[in-house]
């Protein structure tokens, strides 16, 4: 599974970072950085929570 972010929607609120810090991080400019675009083993539930928890619906999980 892959993770992608729609930059036109993301405003860097960071809820994703608090739910899956190995994948998401807000950088010094307040922008979201994807540390990886692959779902790390055992973290699918956290990343699903991050996708559901995004107030701007900017995150998406998809097959390749």
């Amino acid at each position: 599974m892959k993770i992608s972010v729609d930059r036109s929607k993301c405003t860097g609120l960071g809820i994703c970072e608090s739910l899956a810090p190995d994948v998401f991080e807000i950088d010094d400019d307040g922008d979201l950085v994807l540390k990886t675009d692959e779902v790390p083993p055992g973290q699918l539930a956290d990343i699903e929570a991050a996708v559901d928890g995004c107030p701007t619906e900017a995150l998406r999980l998809h097959q390749d």
């Binding site: 970072e17 810090p21 950088d27």
Partner: peptide, 15 residues
């Protein structure tokens, strides 16, 4: 205030 790069790290610590 304008601390987007640290706020969620504190949320993690509180959790």
């Amino acid at each position: 205030i304008n601390g987007q790069n640290v706020i969620m790290k504190f949320r993690g610590l509180i959790m």
